[in-house]
């Protein structure tokens, strides 16, 4: 069903027909998936449409955030090291540069 929703949004009625389930059964199913953040629903008029939930997107965002933090921390250390190298070069440069 998640695969199906990945391809296109669908109403609960359509999903129930597609998966040979009763409307009540599909409503329960969707409610649980909705609680898990895997599916979200939107009611327009009398039709409730199901879409994929934000959870997958969140997973990717969370990983990119930690990747970002890793590199930000790493580059902050690099900044310090580079400052030190510049100072050393200034001192040595006066002695060594031709």
């Amino acid at each position: 069903m998640l695969e199906q929703l990945g391809r296109s949004d669908a109403s609960i009625t359509t999903l129930a027909e597609k998966f040979h389930m009763t409307l009540t059964g599909m409503k329960k199913h969707v409610a649980i998936l909705e609680q898990a953040g895997l599916v979200r629903t939107e009611k327009v008029g009398r039709v409730r449409t199901c879409k994929l939930g934000a959870r997958r997107l969140e997973q990717e965002t969370a990983w990119l955030d930690s990747y970002h933090q890793l590199w930000a921390a790493r580059f902050d250390e690099l900044d310090k090291v580079v400052e030190q190298l510049k100072r050393e070069e200034k001192v040595n440069g006066r002695k060594n540069r031709e």
């Binding site: 069903m1 329960k28 199913h29």
Partner: peptide
Amino acid sequence: QLDELLAGSAN
């Protein structure tokens, strides 16, 4: 798998 499990129990 969760999806399948739910489909089974709902039916």
